[in-house]
Design a protein around this nucleic acid. Structure first.
Lengths: 158, 158
DNA sequence: GAACGATACGTTATATTGTATCCTTCGTTG
DNA sequence: CAACGAAGGATACAATATAACGTATCGTTC
């Protein structure tokens, strides 16, 4: 197992602490395999598909990894709020707001692929109100805006 | 071709007119095959997956239909605003607001599967503002709220 | 109406994303 | 350490979506 640990992407203490904290809160176990997947995602800091992630992990660990394995780890990471799934691109992104669990909204740049995670309580409130008016009891909301990020919008003007 | 037309789901004049109007606006062609897919979707009036739709069409037309065919028709229907794609369930739903093109938000019931299409200009405005504050130039927004519809929420109380 | 370009359609194969099943391993707890 | 439940692994497969290529159809222009 020491070998496997040695082949995990470097993980800043900040993120490790965060993961430990979340697991403690939710009564989940933070295993090396789970941590390895999280570390790999943090090493990229961008949205990756599940299969991209498999490739990255296989390369780092020099062994085959079954899709199901990664999907289970992703489930875990999403359950604990450490990772978000972007529905409109079927990709996964480590949460960028370590402070506390929350609902997020995302701005996806269709040019450079960058994703900006934002948190608007105003938007959440409005969504709640809209649901409420229709007798709908909301559980969770997917809000993903596609467009051009600031940098790419500027470039395009030229 | 008469055979194929005969095996198209019935399509109320209202929806046919709508499709014709949208095509005229956008310079698209409204072919029998496209209309058949639209009619099939309207006959269900609920969100269906692409492969469900293939099955329905194959049954009605008594012949094999390649996935790509249906995906192309779906592209067309989405382009013309006649159909929405629900990102969080990878399903497709005929638009329920025939008046004019628009951005929609969706309330998806996780119990009965019903989808309520709503249109909130307030929400759109807020999303624009959030994007604008970050220099993001929005193109289109995915807003999909999962939860329990009124009817299912009541049932669950028992 | 013949020729042409653009759009739509069909077929085959394949890529991508995600699950089912079954068994093994690990960690805790008594 | 025995027993139990959670986590991990292997194999197979299901579901969703696209690539590449050729053919047919439509609309225009001559």
């Amino acid at each position: 197992m020491a070998r496997q640990l040695a082949r995990t992407a470097p993980l800043a203490a900040k993120w490790r602490k965060l993961a430990e904290g979340r697991c403690a809160e939710k009564g989940e176990r933070l295993t090396p395999a789970r941590l390895a997947v999280y570390a790999e995602m943090l090493a990229r800091r961008r949205a990756v598909s599940a299969y991209e992630l498999i490739g990255l992990l296989e390369k780092r660990q020099e062994r085959k990894i079954a899709p199901l394995t990664v999907y289970r780890h992703l489930d875990f990471l999403i359950r604990t709020g450490l990772v978000h799934r972007l529905q409109s691109t079927q990709t996964y992104l480590p949460c960028d707001h370590p402070d506390q669990a929350h609902e997020s909204q995302f701005l996806l740049c269709s040019s450079c692929g960058n994703v900006d995670e934002v948190e608007s309580t105003g938007l959440e409130a409005l969504l709640s109100r809209i649901a409420d008016e229709r007798g709908f009891r909301p559980d969770n909301a997917v809000v993903e805006v596609k467009g051009l990020c600031g940098a790419c919008a500027v470039e395009e003007q030229d």
